[in-house]
């Protein structure tokens, strides 16, 4: 066989034939997911707007509102840090992911991936890994900045555990909504809507402005939104040393289940 197909320098067809002998097979799933997550992370780092949204804006807001107490009275750094962490989760899991996925769908990237050995569940897994990786980076930056600004959290092991659970639940809730949007709307509509929702939830999500300043009738509604539940949960654990944030976790879990189920039913891959 090898003699029969021995490549000659002047015969490009035979040279190709030698390397193209079929030897098909899928790689193990974890290796595929790791490779795809690595690619998604690299593409994200290369995208200036995404970095601005996920890394710069949360820190800028934290620094600006911590230093100038006249902007919003009665909200020090201890109030702000949990809200900014919630904002970071929202920007990465929802806005950034919705926009990126919407354009991947538009450019046929998702369709093309559907022809590779990477299964759809593996692609979702890779995206989730990338989101969590960015969130870890965001949290590190926010925590360092917050400590520098005089943040004194209730840092017990239990509190840390609840923070992780809340962030994961929030990530699941926002990711479901992001994929619901990216899988049904046109890419440009997703871009506009994801940014609009981001601004809206920044205002009414308990991120910077306390929900207690809103009319009493609004508060249950705002606490039932994923942004309000996540910021309230983080704040109750980190600032008020409350225990198990049951109500907020339940709200996030409901959004996660509903969003992911709807996205799974409606997502269009091309």
């Amino acid at each position: 066989m090898s003699e029969a197909t021995a490549a000659r320098a002047d015969d490009p067809e035979a040279a190709w034939a030698q390397v193209l002998r079929p030897a098909a097979g899928a790689a193990p799933l974890p290796r595929m997911i790791a490779a795809q997550a690595w690619l998604e992370a690299r593409l994200l780092v290369r995208n200036g707007e995404q970095l601005l949204l996920t890394l710069l804006i949360p820190v800028l807001l934290l620094v600006a509102f911590s230093l100038d107490k006249s902007l919003i009275r009665g909200t020090g750094v201890n109030f702000l840090v949990p809200g900014i962490i919630a904002l970071a989760v929202m920007s990465t899991a929802f806005t950034s992911q919705a926009i990126a996925t919407g354009f991947e769908r538009r450019y046929g990237v998702l369709k093309r991936l559907g022809a590779t050995p990477l299964p759809r569940g593996g692609l979702i897994g890779a995206k989730s890994l990338t989101v969590v990786g960015v969130e870890v980076l965001q949290a590190a930056i926010i925590i360092v900045a917050g400590l520098g600004l005089g943040w004194r959290p209730h840092a017990t092991p239990a509190a840390a555990a609840w923070v992780v659970v809340l962030i994961l639940a929030g990530t699941a809730a926002f990711s479901g909504l992001a994929l619901l949007m990216a899988g049904t709307l046109r890419a440009e509509a997703t871009l506009a809507a994801a940014n609009l929702v981001y601004l809206l939830l920044l205002g009414v999500g308990g991120i910077i402005f306390p929900l207690s300043r809103f009319p009493a009738g609004w508060q249950p509604v705002l606490l039932a939104l994923p942004s309000g539940a996540l910021s309230d949960g983080l704040r109750s654990v980190l600032a008020h040393s409350s225990g198990f944030p049951a109500r907020d976790l339940l709200v996030l879990a409901c959004w996660a289940v509903a969003g992911i189920a709807l996205a799974a039913r409606t997502f269009r891959w091309d």
Partner: peptide, 21 residues
């Protein structure tokens, strides 16, 4: 096509290669 606009040829093929045995 279906290739991400910002991806570089080498890294794209490296990732696809990791999908195969």
């Amino acid at each position: 096509g279906g290739i991400p606009p910002a991806v570089r040829p080498a890294e794209y093929l490296q990732v696809l290669a990791r999908f195969h045995a």
